[in-house]
Protein backbone atom coordinates (compact mmCIF):
# COMPACT_ATOMS: atom_id res chain seq x y z
CA UNK A 1 0.00 0.00 0.00
CA UNK A 2 2.85 2.39 0.82
CA UNK A 3 4.50 1.76 -2.56
CA UNK A 4 1.13 2.30 -4.20
CA UNK A 5 0.72 5.70 -2.53
CA UNK A 6 4.25 6.79 -3.47
CA UNK A 7 3.62 5.75 -7.06
CA UNK A 8 0.40 7.74 -7.23
CA UNK A 9 2.00 10.85 -5.78
CA UNK A 10 4.99 10.56 -8.11
CA UNK A 11 2.72 10.18 -11.10
CA UNK A 12 0.73 13.16 -9.94
CA UNK A 13 3.84 15.24 -9.61
CA UNK A 14 4.99 14.37 -13.13
CA UNK A 15 1.62 15.17 -14.59
CA UNK A 16 1.37 18.43 -12.71
CA UNK A 17 4.78 19.44 -13.96
CA UNK A 18 3.91 18.48 -17.53
CA UNK A 19 0.64 20.32 -17.44
CA UNK A 20 2.18 23.34 -15.74
CA UNK A 21 4.74 23.56 -18.49
CA UNK A 22 2.00 23.31 -21.07
CA UNK A 23 0.02 25.95 -19.28
CA UNK A 24 2.95 28.29 -19.22
CA UNK A 25 3.36 27.84 -22.91
CA UNK A 26 -0.12 28.23 -24.27
CA UNK A 27 -2.99 27.82 -21.86
CA UNK A 28 -3.84 31.43 -21.29
CA UNK A 29 -3.22 32.42 -24.83
CA UNK A 30 -5.63 29.94 -26.39
CA UNK A 31 -8.79 28.50 -24.78
CA UNK A 32 -9.19 24.78 -25.28
CA UNK A 33 -12.50 24.60 -27.09
CA UNK A 34 -13.65 21.81 -29.34
CA UNK A 35 -14.03 18.04 -29.43
CA UNK A 36 -11.60 15.33 -28.54
CA UNK A 37 -11.39 11.61 -28.31
CA UNK A 38 -8.87 9.34 -26.75
CA UNK A 39 -8.00 6.23 -24.86
CA UNK A 40 -8.35 5.58 -21.19
CA UNK A 41 -6.20 3.28 -19.11
CA UNK A 42 -7.92 2.92 -15.81
CA UNK A 43 -8.30 0.59 -12.93
CA UNK A 44 -11.83 0.13 -14.25
CA UNK A 45 -10.59 -1.16 -17.59
CA UNK A 46 -9.46 0.04 -20.94
CA UNK A 47 -11.71 2.48 -22.71
CA UNK A 48 -12.36 5.35 -24.98
CA UNK A 49 -13.94 8.73 -24.57
CA UNK A 50 -15.51 11.50 -26.56
CA UNK A 51 -15.36 14.95 -25.02
CA UNK A 52 -16.62 18.39 -25.87
CA UNK A 53 -15.94 21.67 -24.22
CA UNK A 54 -18.85 23.71 -23.04
CA UNK A 55 -18.71 27.45 -23.47
CA UNK A 56 -15.91 29.47 -24.93
CA UNK A 57 -13.59 29.68 -21.98
CA UNK A 58 -12.66 26.04 -22.00
CA UNK A 59 -13.09 25.57 -18.27
CA UNK A 60 -15.94 23.12 -18.57
CA UNK A 61 -16.25 19.98 -20.68
CA UNK A 62 -18.68 17.14 -21.14
CA UNK A 63 -17.19 13.69 -21.41
CA UNK A 64 -18.75 10.43 -22.57
CA UNK A 65 -16.56 7.49 -21.86
CA UNK A 66 -16.66 3.73 -21.62
CA UNK A 67 -14.20 1.27 -20.24
CA UNK A 68 -14.18 -2.49 -19.84
CA UNK A 69 -11.82 -5.10 -18.53
CA UNK A 70 -12.81 -8.77 -18.32
CA UNK A 71 -10.69 -11.17 -16.40
CA UNK A 72 -11.09 -14.90 -16.28
CA UNK A 73 -10.03 -16.94 -13.29
CA UNK A 74 -9.03 -20.44 -14.15
CA UNK A 75 -8.34 -22.80 -11.26
CA UNK A 76 -6.99 -19.99 -9.14
CA UNK A 77 -6.21 -21.52 -5.76
CA UNK A 78 -6.81 -19.71 -2.50
CA UNK A 79 -6.39 -20.94 1.02
CA UNK A 80 -9.23 -20.21 3.39
CA UNK A 81 -7.48 -20.06 6.71
CA UNK A 82 -9.20 -21.15 9.86
CA UNK A 83 -11.79 -23.21 8.08
CA UNK A 84 -13.43 -25.84 10.10
CA UNK A 85 -13.80 -28.95 8.04
CA UNK A 86 -16.19 -30.49 10.43
CA UNK A 87 -15.47 -34.13 9.97
CA UNK A 88 -15.68 -36.74 12.61
CA UNK A 89 -12.44 -38.37 11.72
CA UNK A 90 -10.54 -35.67 9.98
CA UNK A 91 -10.56 -32.06 11.03
CA UNK A 92 -8.14 -29.50 9.86
CA UNK A 93 -7.66 -25.80 9.61
CA UNK A 94 -7.21 -24.26 6.23
CA UNK A 95 -9.01 -25.30 3.13
CA UNK A 96 -7.91 -24.80 -0.40
CA UNK A 97 -10.46 -23.66 -2.92
CA UNK A 98 -10.15 -23.49 -6.67
CA UNK A 99 -11.74 -20.39 -8.13
CA UNK A 100 -13.15 -20.36 -11.60
CA UNK A 101 -15.19 -17.64 -13.15
CA UNK A 102 -15.14 -14.17 -14.44
CA UNK A 103 -14.40 -10.75 -13.05
CA UNK A 104 -15.69 -7.94 -15.19
CA UNK A 105 -14.83 -4.31 -14.62
CA UNK A 106 -16.33 -1.55 -16.63
CA UNK A 107 -18.73 1.27 -16.97
CA UNK A 108 -20.19 3.81 -19.34
CA UNK A 109 -19.76 7.30 -17.92
CA UNK A 110 -21.26 10.66 -18.63
CA UNK A 111 -19.39 13.34 -16.70
CA UNK A 112 -18.66 17.00 -16.57
CA UNK A 113 -15.16 18.33 -16.00
CA UNK A 114 -14.62 21.74 -14.48
CA UNK A 115 -11.31 23.54 -14.23
CA UNK A 116 -12.03 25.86 -11.30
CA UNK A 117 -8.61 27.49 -11.34
CA UNK A 118 -8.54 27.84 -15.09
CA UNK A 119 -5.52 25.64 -15.22
CA UNK A 120 -5.12 21.86 -15.77
CA UNK A 121 -6.54 20.95 -12.39
CA UNK A 122 -10.06 19.61 -12.74
CA UNK A 123 -12.97 18.35 -10.78
CA UNK A 124 -15.07 15.68 -12.44
CA UNK A 125 -18.62 14.72 -11.54
CA UNK A 126 -20.95 12.41 -13.34
CA UNK A 127 -22.81 9.16 -13.39
CA UNK A 128 -21.97 5.72 -14.67
CA UNK A 129 -23.80 2.71 -15.92
CA UNK A 130 -21.84 -0.01 -14.21
CA UNK A 131 -21.10 -3.37 -15.72
CA UNK A 132 -18.65 -4.41 -13.03
CA UNK A 133 -19.45 -7.76 -11.52
CA UNK A 134 -17.84 -10.86 -10.15
CA UNK A 135 -19.14 -14.36 -10.81
CA UNK A 136 -17.03 -17.09 -9.30
CA UNK A 137 -17.48 -20.74 -8.52
CA UNK A 138 -15.26 -22.09 -5.80
CA UNK A 139 -14.67 -25.80 -5.57
CA UNK A 140 -12.45 -27.69 -3.14
CA UNK A 141 -9.03 -28.43 -4.54
CA UNK A 142 -8.35 -31.60 -2.63
CA UNK A 143 -10.13 -34.82 -1.81
CA UNK A 144 -11.57 -35.35 1.65
CA UNK A 145 -11.45 -38.63 3.44
CA UNK A 146 -13.53 -40.03 6.24
CA UNK A 147 -13.17 -43.61 7.26
CA UNK A 148 -12.85 -45.64 4.10
CA UNK A 149 -14.62 -43.08 1.96
CA UNK A 150 -12.70 -40.58 -0.07
CA UNK A 151 -14.68 -37.89 -1.82
CA UNK A 152 -13.14 -36.09 -4.74
CA UNK A 153 -13.38 -32.31 -5.13
CA UNK A 154 -16.24 -32.64 -7.58
CA UNK A 155 -18.29 -34.57 -5.06
CA UNK A 156 -17.99 -32.11 -2.21
CA UNK A 157 -20.08 -29.29 -3.54
CA UNK A 158 -19.56 -25.77 -4.76
CA UNK A 159 -19.71 -22.23 -3.54
CA UNK A 160 -21.21 -19.70 -5.91
CA UNK A 161 -20.00 -16.22 -5.22
CA UNK A 162 -21.43 -13.28 -7.10
CA UNK A 163 -20.91 -9.59 -6.53
CA UNK A 164 -22.72 -6.84 -8.32
CA UNK A 165 -22.86 -3.09 -7.89
CA UNK A 166 -25.86 -0.86 -8.62
CA UNK A 167 -26.51 -0.23 -12.30
CA UNK A 168 -26.29 3.50 -11.95
CA UNK A 169 -23.64 5.03 -9.71
CA UNK A 170 -22.52 8.62 -9.14
CA UNK A 171 -18.91 9.49 -9.74
CA UNK A 172 -16.67 12.20 -8.34
CA UNK A 173 -13.04 12.73 -9.12
CA UNK A 174 -10.21 15.21 -9.44
CA UNK A 175 -7.16 15.29 -11.59
CA UNK A 176 -5.06 17.11 -14.09
CA UNK A 177 -5.37 17.51 -17.77
CA UNK A 178 -8.01 18.68 -20.12
CA UNK A 179 -10.63 16.58 -21.80
CA UNK A 180 -10.01 18.60 -24.96
CA UNK A 181 -6.30 19.40 -25.06
CA UNK A 182 -4.96 22.65 -26.30
CA UNK A 183 -2.50 20.85 -28.49
CA UNK A 184 -3.29 17.95 -30.76
CA UNK A 185 -2.40 15.41 -28.09
CA UNK A 186 -2.63 15.72 -24.35
CA UNK A 187 -2.34 13.57 -21.28
CA UNK A 188 -4.55 13.61 -18.27
CA UNK A 189 -4.68 11.92 -14.94
CA UNK A 190 -7.68 11.48 -12.73
CA UNK A 191 -8.43 9.87 -9.44
CA UNK A 192 -11.96 9.41 -8.26
CA UNK A 193 -14.51 7.07 -6.93
CA UNK A 194 -17.88 5.62 -7.77
CA UNK A 195 -20.35 5.58 -4.93
CA UNK A 196 -21.65 2.02 -5.04
CA UNK A 197 -23.38 1.83 -1.68
CA UNK A 198 -22.88 -1.74 -0.58
CA UNK A 199 -22.18 -4.29 -3.27
CA UNK A 200 -24.85 -6.91 -3.63
CA UNK A 201 -23.64 -10.36 -2.74
CA UNK A 202 -25.02 -13.56 -4.22
CA UNK A 203 -23.80 -16.47 -2.19
CA UNK A 204 -24.88 -20.05 -2.56
CA UNK A 205 -23.40 -23.30 -1.41
CA UNK A 206 -24.18 -26.83 -2.43
CA UNK A 207 -23.48 -30.37 -1.34
CA UNK A 208 -21.27 -30.91 1.63
CA UNK A 209 -20.35 -27.24 1.66
CA UNK A 210 -23.91 -26.18 2.44
CA UNK A 211 -23.11 -25.29 6.07
CA UNK A 212 -20.81 -22.61 4.71
CA UNK A 213 -23.92 -20.68 3.70
CA UNK A 214 -23.93 -19.33 7.26
CA UNK A 215 -20.90 -17.28 6.25
CA UNK A 216 -22.99 -15.13 3.94
CA UNK A 217 -23.80 -12.70 6.73
CA UNK A 218 -20.13 -12.33 7.57
CA UNK A 219 -19.26 -11.60 3.96
CA UNK A 220 -22.06 -9.10 3.70
CA UNK A 221 -20.84 -7.31 6.80
CA UNK A 222 -17.32 -7.16 5.41
CA UNK A 223 -18.58 -5.82 2.10
CA UNK A 224 -20.61 -3.06 3.74
CA UNK A 225 -17.40 -1.07 4.12
CA UNK A 226 -16.98 -1.03 0.36
CA UNK A 227 -19.33 1.84 -0.32
CA UNK A 228 -16.93 3.42 -2.81
CA UNK A 229 -15.13 1.98 -5.79
CA UNK A 230 -11.94 3.99 -6.34
CA UNK A 231 -10.70 4.52 -9.88
CA UNK A 232 -7.42 5.83 -11.21
CA UNK A 233 -7.38 6.83 -14.84
CA UNK A 234 -4.64 7.82 -17.21
CA UNK A 235 -5.84 9.18 -20.51
CA UNK A 236 -4.46 10.16 -23.86
CA UNK A 237 -6.59 12.77 -25.58
CA UNK A 238 -6.53 13.70 -29.23
CA UNK A 239 -8.09 16.94 -30.21
CA UNK A 240 -10.37 16.52 -33.21
CA UNK A 241 -11.34 20.13 -33.80
CA UNK A 242 -8.91 22.88 -34.79
Amino acid sequence: MKKYKIFILLLTFILVQTETQATNDSLLAKPSNGISTGMLFSSNGLGIHLSKTLGQKGICALKLSASYLPYTLNNFVINVDGSNINLNANSSTGFKLKLNGKIELGSANLSAEIHPFKNAFKITAGAALMVSRIDLIATPRDSLKQGDVSLGPDEQGEIFFGLTVPNLCPYLGIGFGRAVPKKRVGLNFEIGSYYIGSPKLAFRTTGMLEPTSSEEKKLNNNLKTYYALPVITLGINIRLSK
Binding site: I8, T12, V16, N86, F121, P230
Partner: peptide, 30 residues
Protein backbone atom coordinates in the same frame (compact mmCIF):
# COMPACT_ATOMS: atom_id res chain seq x y z
CA UNK B 1 -6.55 18.86 -3.49
CA UNK B 2 -5.15 15.87 -5.28
CA UNK B 3 -3.15 14.76 -2.27
CA UNK B 4 -6.28 14.92 -0.10
CA UNK B 5 -8.19 12.90 -2.68
CA UNK B 6 -5.50 10.27 -2.85
CA UNK B 7 -5.42 10.11 0.90
CA UNK B 8 -9.19 9.64 1.07
CA UNK B 9 -9.17 6.96 -1.61
CA UNK B 10 -6.32 5.15 0.04
CA UNK B 11 -8.13 5.28 3.36
CA UNK B 12 -11.18 3.77 1.68
CA UNK B 13 -9.24 1.04 0.00
CA UNK B 14 -6.79 0.18 2.69
CA UNK B 15 -7.19 1.21 6.25
CA UNK B 16 -10.87 1.25 7.15
CA UNK B 17 -11.92 -1.50 4.81
CA UNK B 18 -12.30 -5.02 5.97
CA UNK B 19 -10.86 -7.83 3.98
CA UNK B 20 -13.95 -9.19 2.20
CA UNK B 21 -13.08 -12.69 3.35
CA UNK B 22 -12.06 -11.71 6.87
CA UNK B 23 -13.33 -14.35 9.27
CA UNK B 24 -14.70 -16.40 6.38
CA UNK B 25 -14.39 -20.12 6.94
CA UNK B 26 -15.45 -23.22 5.07
CA UNK B 27 -17.56 -25.68 6.97
CA UNK B 28 -18.22 -29.03 5.40
CA UNK B 29 -20.78 -31.57 6.42
CA UNK B 30 -19.49 -34.89 7.60
Amino acid sequence: FLAIAIYMVSMNSGCKLKNPTEGFAITAKA
